[in-house]
Design a protein around this nucleic acid. Structure first.
Length: 220
DNA sequence: TCATTAAATTGTT
DNA sequence: AACAATTTAATGA
């Protein structure tokens, strides 16, 4: 189990920091344990830190039964709310026991002002998120549920937003359904189609992605 | 280590 | 949506 400092040093954005900047991050970061089904953040709550998933899996959403995004270990989020709204506009729920890193707003803003590398990382991350968002709305127009499920799963394998994610996702078919905006029954059917196509493997309570590219381009 | 039981997940109608 | 079947995890001998 990595310490919080190790996890941060491994993250993509920390690599571009100078030693004194990294030191300040490590000095001000706070680790928070969130048990499965616990709230990492709540809609309407003021945002006072940038959040990173050290270990575990967090689901962002809270709109009806629709899930906006799944953030696996190595993913960072809330920068948009931190910069703009000052309030969370979604719930964050831990899908399993998770360790969350909280970088205080002052540190975050200081990095943004003093580190070009950090600014570039954020720019890139925001851009990737925009792309993800477009892909999701595009998904809504595609009627074929198999493709929708494939795309939703594929968004979790964005190497920039979520580096070093394992290809083994511990997600029940019910959660995959919520994630894709289809019923559990339909998600099950779609997963079987994708399994027969050799793109992924379904097991009890988890899916293993064998071919990310095929998953991404499925149905095109 | 193995059997039993409970809980979670999946398949079916 | 409800029910049955199956898998996993937990408990205790």
């Amino acid at each position: 189990m990595p310490t919080i400092g190790e996890a941060i040093r491994c993250s993509l954005w920390a690599r571009s920091l100078a030693p004194d900047q990294l030191a300040r991050v490590e000095a001000t970061v706070v680790e928070l344990f969130v048990p499965a089904n616990g709230f990492v953040c709540r809609k309407g709550e003021p945002v006072e830190s940038w959040l990173g998933v050290i270990e575990g899996l967090v689901k962002l959403g809270g709109f009806r039964n629709f899930t906006g995004a799944i953030v696996p270990a190595g993913g960072w989020f809330a920068e948009g709310s931190l910069l703009k709204d000052k309030l969370f506009k979604y719930d964050g729920i831990a899908l399993r026991d998770s360790r969350i890193a909280r970088v205080p707003r002052e540190t975050f803003e200081w990095l943004l002002e003093t580190s070009i590398g950090f600014s570039r990382f954020l720019l890139h991350q925001l851009n990737e998120r925009l792309g993800q968002f477009i892909a999701i709305t595009e998904c809504d127009r595609v009627l074929d549920p198999d493709t929708r499920v494939a795309r939703s799963l594929a968004t979790m394998f964005n190497p920039y937003l979520y580096p070093g994610i394992e290809n083994r996702l511990q997600l029940s078919q019910e959660e995959i359904g919520r994630l894709s905006g289809v019923s559990r029954q339909r998600a099950n059917q779609a997963l079987q189609v994708l399994e027969k196509a050799g793109i992924l493997k379904v097991d009890y309570g988890r899916v293993t992605v064998l071919d990310v590219e095929a998953l991404r381009s499925f149905g095109v």
